[in-house]
Design a protein around this nucleic acid. Structure first.
Lengths: 157, 157
DNA sequence: TCTTGACCTCAAGTTAAGTTGAGGTCTTAG
DNA sequence: CTAAGACCTCAACTTAACTTGAGGTCAAGA
C-alpha cells in the first residue's frame, strides 16, 4: 500500500478505512461525496482514495449535524474552503465568521432551554399559571407570530 | 367567546389562535397532537380547544427541536409530565434531570465546534498537517470507530 | 337564510438524510 | 490462477417531520 516517506502511514485512505476511522458507514461517505461535502481521487481501478484531511472534515460534519445544522448549511459553509488547494488562513477566517454567529445563537438557545427547565422546577410553570417566567398578563397574545419568551431571537434568514 | 372571570382573556384557545400565537402551522399542531406532544379538548362541534399552557409546551418543542432533539425524544420527555392533571414539582424535577445531561452535552459540543473553528483560524488545520489541534502523530488510526477529538464523548444510549 | 372563513378527517405528497440491494469489478493472499 | 473480500454504480426503499388537497362541517354577520 502507498506509504509516507519516513513514517509507516498510508498517504491516502480507502473508503473502508475512512469509514472505520470516522465511524460513519461507507454508504454515508458515498452520500456525502455526492452532496459535495467531501472529495476523493480515484485509483486506476476507479476506487476512491481520500486525503487524510477528510477525517477531520467528516468529524466536522457529524458534530455540526448533531447540534442541529443541516447538511445543506454545512455544505455551504465548507464550500467556502477551496476543496482543491489547501485552504489558507483567510478561508478559515471566513468560515469561522460565518458560523460563529450561528453557533453562539444555538448555544444561547440551548442554555435558555436548560435554564428554563431549572427555573420550572422551582415554580411548576408551563402548567401552573402564576409563574415568574410566565408571559406576564399574557400580553403577547396580539403581537403576531412566533413562540414567545422561550425562543431567542433568530436572525433574519 | 369563553372568557376568564375578571380579565378579558379567553380561557381556551382554538387551533387557529394557537397557530397564530405560537408561530406554527395549524397542520403542525394537528401533527403534534397525533404524536402525543400536545392535547386538546373538543367543543360540541368537534373543534379543538387548547388550554393556555399549550403555548409554552409548543415553544418548548420548537426550541428543543431547533437544537437538534428529535420529536420522539421530546415526546418521551414530555410524557414524564402527566398531561391530564397539572404537573407537580416532582414531575418537573424528573424532566429537568433527564434533560440536563443531554443539554449540557450538546452545549459542550457546540462550544467545542465553535472553538475548534476559532483555533483553526490561527493554524489552518483541517487541511494543513502540522497543527496543534491535529491528531498528534495520527495515533488514533488503529483505535476503533468513532470520530476522534472533535466529538465530545456521548453517553451510552 | 345564506355565505364566508375557520375547522374537521384522512390520504397522499415532499424533503432531508441515509440505507439496502442487485449486479458487476478490483485486489491480494494462497 | 483463483477465490474472498473490498469496491463500484444506480435505483429503490426508509424514517422523520411536515405540507397539501379533497371533501365536508361549524359559526357568525348581513
Amino acid at each position: 500500500m502507498n506509504q509516507g516517506p519516513q513514517h509507516g502511514l498510508p498517504m491516502t485512505l480507502s473508503v473502508g478505512e475512512v469509514a472505520r476511522r470516522s465511524g460513519v458507514a461507507v454508504s454515508t461517505l458515498h452520500f456525502y461525496e455526492a452532496k459535495g461535502l467531501i472529495r476523493s481521487e480515484r485509483t486506476v481501478g476507479n476506487q476512491r482514495r481520500y486525503a487524510r484531511a477528510v477525517l477531520r472534515r467528516v468529524s466536522f460534519v457529524r458534530v455540526a449535524q448533531r447540534v442541529g445544522i443541516s447538511l445543506a448549511d454545512i455544505a455551504a459553509a465548507l464550500a467556502a474552503l477551496p476543496a482543491t488547494a489547501s485552504p489558507g488562513r483567510e478561508d478559515w477566517a471566513r468560515l469561522s465568521a460565518a458560523w460563529r454567529e450561528e453557533l453562539d445563537e444555538r448555544i444561547a438557545q440551548l442554555k435558555k432551554l436548560r435554564d428554563t427547565l431549572d427555573d420550572c422546577i422551582g415554580c411548576g410553570c408551563l402548567s401552573i399559571d402564576r409563574c415568574r417566567l410566565r408571559n406576564p398578563g399574557d400580553k403577547l397574545g396580539g403581537e403576531g407570530a412566533g413562540p414567545q419568551r422561550l425562543l431567542v431571537r433568530k436572525k433574519g434568514r
